[in-house]
Amino acid sequence: MAENITYRQALHDTLRAELLRDENVLLIGEEIGAFEGSYKITAGLLDEFGPRRVRDTPICEEGFTGAAIGAAMLGLRPVVEIMTINFSLLAIDQIINHAAKMHAMFGGQVRVPLVIRTPGGGGQQLAATHSQNLEVFYAHIPGLKVVAPSTPADAKGLLATAVRDDDPVIFLENLALYNTRGEVPDDDHTVPIGTAAVTKPGRDLTIVAYSRAAVIALEVAHRLEEEGISAEVVDLRSLRPLDRPTVCASVRRTHRAVVLEDDWLSYGIGAEIAATIQEGAFDYLDAPVRRVAAAEVPLPYAKPLETAALPNAAALTRVIREVLDATGFTPRPTPGRTRLGDP
């Protein structure tokens, strides 16, 4: 059985299920209780589970993130909500210097089963400090795991896995995804960390993306299908560990690759993907790997400027055409269109 729900609902339902499943799970964050969360992910949970397990905090990201680390060291499984990824910078010492290090630095004697949920993303006119995609900061760090689901089903499956994982997991959400809908399995659905998904098979080109960008990539790929261009979409889902074999296997089939990412271009996730492809699929490439990423500017407030700075479907489509043109590609009308889920 499956039901069609929003990404937000999938997160909410999973948090509730994990609270019910394991007494050691507790939620920690600013305004997650009476206010029900800035983005209403935790709606109703304070009423159901009480303040012991749904714990509002003062505004002190370093303090409560660090406290969650300490609680995790003693065997609790805290799920922290940091209101947006921008504020995680206030807690970055605790995340990088402590959560990521303890298991290794203390010789495996302690575990930090902690989830930090936080949304990234721009496009809501929140201006430069509230519109960033900083996941690469965390994806760079051994000892952390970083996941970035794009669909309600993956949001559910990865959140459940993250809560049950014994390592600190950065769970990246996106403001623009909360209202998106999708089929979500009813049962105890989990998705393994460290595995990407081919969300649409294709022959001619691979689009690699994650989080919001993976949704755009899928839309573009379906549209191109109507023009006889068969694009494959690889949704990374996990940024650390990164599923390099799935990316490389796809590019070996299609010979062309474009990365769509919401973060800034230089040193971004796409740079890692491009490096991976050149090493893992060098002899299969018919064109250089291209990246479609955010303009390298503190994101402006004014709408036209904000829109211009963010990667979108049009830019992705243009770059795909450039890559195809450069390799003498001619569209092939296909008798049956490939849809999501087709074998």
């Binding site: 010979h255 018919d286 064109a287 450069a326 390799t327 003498g328 590609f329």
Partner: peptide, 12 residues
């Protein structure tokens, strides 16, 4: 080569 700058591509 028919690609950009005379690059030899798969099609060639």
């Amino acid at each position: 080569g028919s690609g950009p700058g005379g690059r030899v591509v798969h099609a060639d």
